[in-house]
Write a protein that binds this DNA or RNA. Structure first.
Lengths: 159, 159
DNA sequence: CCTGAAAACTTACTAGG
DNA sequence: CCTAGTAAGTTTTCAGG
């Protein structure tokens, strides 16, 4: 479960986050090591689950996903059965890119990516017909100022 | 700018989103084509900017990022100068993973990933000392129910 | 935990239908 | 737009310090 991440591991993770298509030689050069040790460390980090999915980020707008909504949900239901059903509904809907259970006043927040406002409405109608929710506020994004999957690993540098 | 995405392109994008470490042969087999055409299409899609960064997703919790906040910001400032400054501050802070300008009542939403509540407070203090904002609400995530970067490309299947 | 080398595989490109 | 072929590059494994 717990793997000690040393400075070299951290640098490797920084490089892989930045550009996972680099060759081992490139990564090794950047982190000041060589091929085999870097390969062994990456294997260890994958095995430990620190390194997960390798993916490409696509241009959502160019592909016709022109609307992003953040959805704030309040519910009066707090039974286990209801929650199980609700979480499954979220996981099964591919337009839900993120879903978090929150502390406090608002119970859940979703990030929903759809083609347009009409597609959002279809999503919303389907969701509320599937599970009872008390109050829903949709926030429409006008502009994506920043979007990154990179963790700020610099924050770990002094460990 | 605009590239026509056909059914084969769409399937290639689905595969690359799912697992970008697959070889051309694997992808070709899955989409029902062969190496060279797939290679040419990927090159075209990269050139057009449809395919962007290739990255790995890391286990944030295992790396000690135990707190995620969604931050709702209202501001009274709407001058170009203020906005430019604010956007730069967001882009420069690595703990801000997402930032959107919104329509309506709330002006901005951020997703902020930090080690703990103390680190969030440090971020918050730094931000409000740099730019004037009228009202800030922080929503603390208790549980990440779902998190994906994958676009629901199935929605494009019938085009 | 490292270096260095070798085998297997993959990518990037070309020629030709 | 495809199939087939190939040279260069890359990953993966392993022997040895």
């Amino acid at each position: 479960m717990s793997v000690r991440i040393d400075e070299t591991d951290r640098k490797i993770l920084v490089e892989l986050q930045r550009d996972a298509s680099q060759s081992l030689d490139e990564i090794a050069a950047r982190v000041g090591s060589s091929k085999t040790p870097v390969w062994n460390r990456i294997r260890k980090l994958k095995g430990a689950g620190i390194i997960g999915q390798q993916t490409v980020l696509l241009d959502a707008e160019a592909l016709g996903f022109e609307a992003t909504f953040f959805v704030l949900i309040r519910t009066s239901e707090h039974e286990a059965e209801w929650q199980k059903h609700f979480l499954k509904a979220l996981r099964d809907r591919p337009e839900v890119q993120e879903a978090h259970r929150l502390a406090g006043d608002i119970d859940y927040i979703l990030k929903v990516r759809v083609k347009n406002a009409r597609a959002y409405d279809a999503f919303y109608q389907a969701l509320i017909s599937e599970v009872r929710v008390y109050n829903v506020t949709a926030l429409l994004s006008m502009e994506e100022i920043k979007s990154t999957t990179m963790l700020p690993l610099d924050a770990l540098a002094e460990n």
